[in-house]
Design a protein around this nucleic acid. Structure first.
Length: 508
RNA sequence: GGUCCGUUCGUCUAGUCAGGUCAGGACGCCAGGUUUUCAUCCUGGUAACAGGGGUUCGAAUCCCCUACGGACUACCA
């Protein structure tokens, strides 16, 4: 076989926000394409006009952009295989459906929904193991196989609605090698004559997908495992049309953190974690679903986490740059079974990425958050705060709770600490420490530490008691980073003012 | 119900194709260390081959059965 360029596609249907399972499918397509210096395209599969949701396509595009897995071809940025929206390719599909009918691989069917329903009911009552429109049942239905050519033409000419169904061969084994799942085989006896062309003039997924993948020269079809069962129909389509078949790779599903079944929107709401990359507001109900972006996830951390859901490099390395990910990625290392989503591990990934960011980078973003809260400060000060606190944070927004006292004086104090540490002698002890602080020329953390500790030791004061009370005055609680770093950052005047305020206002 | 697929610590997983290290790592959890505190961090610990039959000197690994789980079963994708 001649060398063929690797071309893969992500082909979502714009029926709502992109689920993280979709993001992962897109990601794996992207990584695979990049690894082989191929193309990654975005095709919008909007053949079902009744399910179209306004805003969904933009949402998908924006999501991929945020994730940094942008297609190099497709809607928006054009390519030579367009259009990339199936609704705009409507005129292309019918000829292939017709060709299949002419070849005897497909046929017209005129059954109404009621008739189909009745057929299924009848088979069920007869105890039939499956109720499909297949080689057996099609003999008793209203279609171009049972009707005469005249009758068929008459129906078509008088605008009686019809669909085109794929005519499956009888009792034939269809097997293929899936790059993830391995060898899979089906017998056509168990499959149904899928509708490939609908009465509204649009193709179904099955036809449109195969036609477009062929026309767009897709080399590998990497998609969710919900498509495994319809793959034999797709294979038949390639065969009937005498087209070269792409390689198939079906991804396992992402499962709920606990309990049964695949991850759904509700799990996110219940478990307090997003299932969508970006926040989504349902245009009809106005219901809001949270997104990873809005929850404070760094896109690179999110992507790293997603890559490890159902895939791993076979080494113990877990933190990967995009470039590293591209280098080590392979379809063969994708797991076969569904992966349970773990929100805790997602946080851990973000923590790792946050620690690897430069303080000033974090500070810039934190500053924006402070501005939103109406707090004005300067970047140098914020950068120092970040360096002190970032290791305790999983998200940039955690920094606010962690560092509020740097911007707003505490006026409420943890009563438990007061009860435990604020003894009779504390006000006078702290007063003495104020004198010590006042006497310092330099207010560096080290200088303060030496001076205060010397004072505590030479006066035989209780270290834990005094230190915690100092902390209480400065922070409002008994937690936080190295106390002398806090003092140094706040500055001499502010430090002393807060201690004074504490002496005057903290009562047992 | 039918078809297809899957099943290793609580979770993500390595190891399975080419049978032979105390079944390895990470998250979580627990303990210890560091510290004025709370975290972080460091060290250690906890914990798994779904069950049953085979094949074999030897099985997580190969075969069969059972159980469980999932997907699909639309004029939806």
């Amino acid at each position: 076989m001649a060398f063929k360029k690797i071309r893969v596609r992500f082909a979502p249907s714009p029926t709502g926000p992109l689920h993280i399972g979709g993001v992962r499918t897109a990601l794996f397509n992207y990584l695979f394409a990049k690894k082989h210096k191929g193309d990654f395209l975005l095709r919008i599969e909007d053949t079902d006009q009744t399910r179209y949701v306004p805003g969904a396509e933009d949402y998908i595009i924006e999501s991929l952009k945020w994730c940094g897995i942008e297609p190099n071809e497709g809607v928006n940025n054009l390519g030579e295989y367009g259009p990339y929206r199936q609704s705009e390719r409507k005129h292309i599909y019918k000829q292939y459906a017709k060709q299949l009918v002419e070849q005897g691989n497909a046929y017209y069917a005129f059954d109404t929904p009621e008739e189909l329903e009745a057929m299924r009911e009848r088979l069920k009552e007869e105890g039939s193991s499956n109720q499909q429109y297949n080689a057996e049942t099609r003999r008793s239905m209203s279609n171009s196989l049972t009707l005469s050519a005249d009758e068929v033409n008459k129906k078509i000419n008088s605008n009686i609605p019809y669909v085109i169904r794929l005519k499956l061969p009888e009792n034939e084994n269809i097997s293929f090698k899936d790059y993830v799942l391995g060898n899979i085989s089906f017998n056509t006896q168990q499959l149904d004559d899928k509708i490939i062309f609908k009465s509204d003039g649009m193709p179904t997924y099955h036809l449109a997908n195969v036609v477009d993948d062929h026309l767009m020269e897709i080399s590998h079809v990497i998609r969710g495992s919900e498509w495994v069962n319809s793959t034999p129909s797709h294979i038949l389509l390639y065969k009937f049309l005498s087209w070269e078949m792409p390689i198939f790779a079906h991804m396992p599903l992402i499962l709920k953190p606990n309990g049964k079944g695949k991850l759904s929107k509700r799990d996110g709401d219940k478990g307090g974690f997003p299932v969508f990359p970006l926040e989504w507001i349902n245009p009809e109900t106005k219901e809001v679903s949270s997104g990873y972006r809005e929850s404070g996830y760094l896109p690179k951390a999110f992507i790293n986490m997603m890559a490890f859901l159902g895939w791993n490099p076979g080494t113990t390395q877990e933190i990967f740059t995009e470039e590293e990910l591209i280098n080590v990625f392979s379809l063969e290392r994708i797991g076969k079974s569904g992966a349970r989503f773990d929100p805790e591990k997602a946080r851990w990934f973000n923590h790792q990425y946050l620690q690897n960011m430069k303080d000033v980078e974090i500070a810039v973003e934190f500053n924006a958050l402070l501005t939103e809260k109406g707090i004005k400060s300067n970047l140098a000060y914020i950068t120092k705060i970040v360096s002190l606190l970032k290791e305790r944070a999983d998200f940039i927004k955690d920094l606010w709770e962690l560092s509020g006292y740097f911007f707003v004086k505490p006026i409420e104090f943890d009563t438990k600490v007061i009860k435990k540490r604020w003894k009779e002698n504390i006000p006078s002890d702290l007063q003495n420490i104020i004198s010590v602080l006042n006497g310092l020329d330099s207010f560096s953390s080290e200088k303060i530490e030496t001076a205060v500790k010397d004072h505590i030791q030479s006066n035989n004061l209780n270290m834990g008691q005094v230190m915690n009370c100092l902390r209480l005055c400065l922070v409002g609680s008994a937690s936080g980073p190295h106390l002398f770093d806090i003092m140094s950052l706040l500055g001499k005047a502010e430090t002393i003012e807060r201690i004074r305020y504490g002496i005057d206002n903290i009562k047992r």
